[in-house]
Design a protein around this nucleic acid. Structure first.
Length: 424
RNA sequence: GGAGAGAUGGCCGAGCGGUCGAAGGCGCGCGCUUGGAAAGCGCGUAAGCUCCUAAAGGGCUUCAUGGGUUCGAAUCCCAUUCUCUCCGCCA
């Protein structure tokens, strides 16, 4: 959520910036500013009357104490009418506040200067590429066929138990999952990220604070009996650790990593995108989160991007890094890098990580602040990224490492898997 | 799930319906003291909104959350959430 004070003081700038995201903010911003004026007007009136009420109440108290019952009672009558008046203004104020809030949450975050204009993913800019992204022979199998051939993932069995998009991993497949999770967590810990294990469900307040509610309600599984939501990413519970928190400056940067299962309804997805492991309702992911000073957040973003790249390198996967254009960047992000791995058998790039700086956009809703060296309280900048999501990594590993003998396990993973090949 | 007790500032903890944004302590910051440190002493130390060009200063709100009673609520009443104790159930 953008800060109202900033929007009020930089109306044209905000509208201009949001055009990069192909978002026409003119009407909303104009509306917000009108309501903001009314809101403050109502507050001034309400505050004035409340101040008077407080004053009179004190006088009444004093009068009672000194035994002047009659005067006290006549003051009481005055107060009665004042109260009604004050209530009207206070109600107005609250109503405007809510209206303003409802509009404010409709505004996306402003993109960073370096975000290229563009309409769709086709306008994203490749800023880095590494590894051999050539295709394999025509006999190469896509991962869903490899999964069946080697009996390591059973998609039908998952459908029987739960539904489409809930695969069952078997034997070396299951073991490989566990290896990847441990590998990712160990790498992150070595890089200074403190490991946390959060709940897999969150309450309404948490879902609102990170912006899943109200707009993405349909994308989350909802346990209605207890009004809990299954997390779509560990970002939600981990970021909420810092809801309503004021950090000390020397605690920054704050680095957390977390493994969690992630649950997404993915309503509206279809076709080749959902084939095999490409899009699941339940998947595993290790998430990295950083909280930092405003002036340091972009350096942190580079560091996080490079860190994720280093893991892909260790897994010997060909990848490239995209700077997302205005049309493809998410609602909440100011700048996002996508890391995509080349899947040689599907002959396409698979998004395996998204690393973003949200600047103060999330922190504003979260009320996540820090005291700087002057003792001033400021909104922190938040960043996060997948490091990494398992299914597509698994897909690429299976496809890219298929050989006539079996599926080769990259060196870095062997200590975790305990085997170096998946054979028939 | 049943019965009871509780929720106060960064932490501990006090708080007859008015003088309480809240005693006292700890912690933290600054200063004095010291060769330096500790101790000691002094001062300071919540957040949000708002008025003011800004600073200074003022106003309003906030003692789990939401409502209510009252001229006036941390204090009384109701609901919700959470914590603790006992019972029940149970990985």
């Amino acid at each position: 959520m953008l800060q109202i004070q900033f929007v009020r003081e930089n109306k044209d700038y905000v509208i201009e910036r949001l055009k990069i995201k192909n978002f026409d903010a003119n009407d909303i911003v104009t509306n917000i500013i009108t309501i903001d004026a009314k809101r403050r007007e109502a507050q001034i009136k309400a505050d004035e009357l409340l101040a008077k009420l407080n004053q009179l109440s004190k006088e009444i108290g004093d009068l009672f104490k000194s035994g002047k019952q009659v005067e006290a009672n006549s003051l009481k009558e005055q107060v009665a009418t004042l109260k009604i008046e004050a209530k009207t203004y206070a109600d107005d104020q609250e109503r405007y506040e809510q209206e303003q809030q409802q509009l404010l949450v409709l505004l996306p975050n402003m993109p960073h200067e370096s975000v290229p204009a563009g309409k769709s993913e086709n306008d994203n800019v490749v800023i880095f590429a590494e590894g051999d992204a050539s295709n394999m022979s025509e006999e190469a199998l896509p991962h869903w066929e490899l999964a069946t051939k080697y009996n390591i993932i059973d998609f039908e069995l998952g459908s029987k138990i739960a539904g489409a998009g809930f695969p069952v991993y078997i034997g070396k497949g299951a073991r490989l999952q566990r290896a990847l999770i441990n590998f990712f967590l160990d790498e992150a810990s070595a890089k200074g990220y403190l490991e946390v294990q959060p709940p897999y469900v969150v309450n309404e307040a948490s879902a609102y604070a990170t912006g899943q509610l109200p707009d993405k309600e349909g994308q989350m599984y909802h346990a209605t009996a207890d009004n809990l939501y299954l997390i779509p990413t560990a970002e939600v519970p981990v970021t909420n650790i810092y809801r309503d928190v004021i950090l000390k400056e020397d605690e920054l940067p704050l680095k957390n990593c977390a493994y969690s299962a992630c649950f997404r309804r993915e309503a509206g997805s279809y076709g080749k995108d959902v084939r095999g492991l490409n899009r699941l309702h339940q998947f595993d992911k290790v998430e990295i989160v950083q909280i930092n000073r405003q002036e340091d957040s972009y350096q942190t973003l580079e560091e996080m991007k490079d860190y994720v790249a280093s893991i892909l390198r260790k897994l010997e996967l060909p990848f490239h890094i995209l700077r997302l254009c205005g049309g493809d960047i998410s609602f909440t992000a100011a700048l996002t890098y996508d890391l995509e791995v080349y899947s040689k058998a599907q002959k396409r790039w698979l998004e395996v990580s998204s690393v973003s700086n949200f600047e103060a956009f999330q922190a504003n809703r979260l009320k996540l602040r820090y005291k700087d060296s002057n003792g001033k309280t400021k909104l922190a900048h938040t960043l996060n990224g997948s490091a990494l999501a398992l299914p597509r990594i698994l897909a690429a590993l299976l496809e890219n490492n298929q050989t006539p003998k079996g599926i080769r396990i990259p060196k870095a993973l062997i200590p975790y898997t305990g085997f170096d090949i998946i054979e028939l």
